[in-house]
């Protein structure tokens, strides 16, 4: 009696399947979230109700439970969910379906042979919501909304390795807004902040989806360009330089003129690591800054 009540009160889905994968038990949680009452589903094939589960991985894991008494884990990261239920509590529209973490394991007879398998279903939608928000916050620059330096450093390394492995071009541009300190000094930090936001949006609009723009420092930005040669990156950089210089920036009713200096470098075989690429782009930026409003490709 106690166990019957627990299985109906517990905040978790519990399903028991027999060897033919017919439903032997279906707890109240499953009934409430699926809208399918136990009387309707018990004795029926699970796949009649959930055809999405009739696929090799699920079947393989069922077989391994019956063959070895094994456990199988269906993590939210890889599977999102097993049972397509609507999110129960979340009012955020991030997910169409309840995110689930599921475990499968054996139920044995007295003689220890595996008679049934159980499936436990945990609703992890809220946890995943928070997790994704945290990941997002960890990657983005709070002011401009573009990526931050930490995430950029990680992607730079990954893209550098990828370009090397597949022998594909990769370019990096470093951008510095000329004399930006004067904007802050003359008009205040609020205008400066607005300018950085507007600038980021403008640059982002000129980039491809596959490019990665990050705020590298105060008024310094980095842009990673996969599948792009140094000469193509130079064309883009010249474009950005012109766009920024020609724009009539209005931030908090203050009209501003901005120019940028750009250093560009392309990944080369002789570079030991992604740090070397960064160093070259930085060197080129340093050179560009001696004249301002220039783009220089390291060669």
């Amino acid at each position: 009696m106690i166990f019957n009540q627990i299985s109906d009160m517990i905040n978790m889905g519990l399903v028991v399947l027999d060897k033919d994968l017919k439903v032997h038990f279906w707890n109240r949680w499953m009934a409430l979230h699926s809208g399918i009452d136990p009387e309707k589903i018990v004795g029926q094939s699970l796949f009649d109700f959930f055809p999405n589960l009739n696929e090799p991985k699920f079947l393989r894991n069922c077989r391994s439970v019956f063959a070895f008494g094994n456990f199988a884990f269906f993590s939210q990261k890889l599977h999102r969910f097993l049972f397509p239920f609507r999110p129960a509590y979340s009012d955020k529209a991030r997910f169409d379906y309840m995110q689930q973490s599921c475990t499968m394991g054996p139920i044995r007879a007295e003689d220890k042979t595996v008679r049934y398998l159980f499936l436990s279903v945990n609703d992890v939608t809220e946890v995943v919501n928070y997790e994704e928000q945290l990941i997002e916050m960890n990657r983005k620059d709070a002011l401009t909304g573009i990526f931050n330096r930490r995430f950029f450093a990680q992607k730079l390394q990954e893209e550098f390795i990828r370009s090397r492995r597949h022998n594909r071009p990769l370019s990096l541009i470093m951008i510095d807004i000329d004399h930006f300190k004067q904007v802050n000094d003359n008009h205040g930090h609020q205008v400066g902040d607005e300018a950085l936001k507007a600038f980021s949006a403008k640059v982002l609009a000129r980039l491809r989806k596959t490019d990665l723009l990050a705020r590298y420092g105060g008024e310094e930005f980095a842009c990673l360009l996969p599948e792009t040669s140094g000469s193509s990156a130079l064309i883009l950089a010249e474009d950005l330089r012109r766009i920024v210089a020609e724009e009539n920036w209005v931030c908090r009713d203050v009209s501003l003129q901005m120019t940028i200096s750009i250093g560009i470098a392309e990944g080369r075989a002789e570079m030991a690591d992604s740090e070397a690429l960064l160093k070259k782009a930085d060197d080129a930026l340093y050179e560009a800054k001696t004249g301002r409003n220039r783009a220089i490709l390291y060669d």
Binding site: K57, S64, G69, N70, F71, F73
Partner: peptide
């Protein structure tokens, strides 16, 4: 997956 099955076996 192969790890889980092989280890379990």
């Amino acid at each position: 997956e192969i790890g889980n099955i092989l280890i379990g076996a």
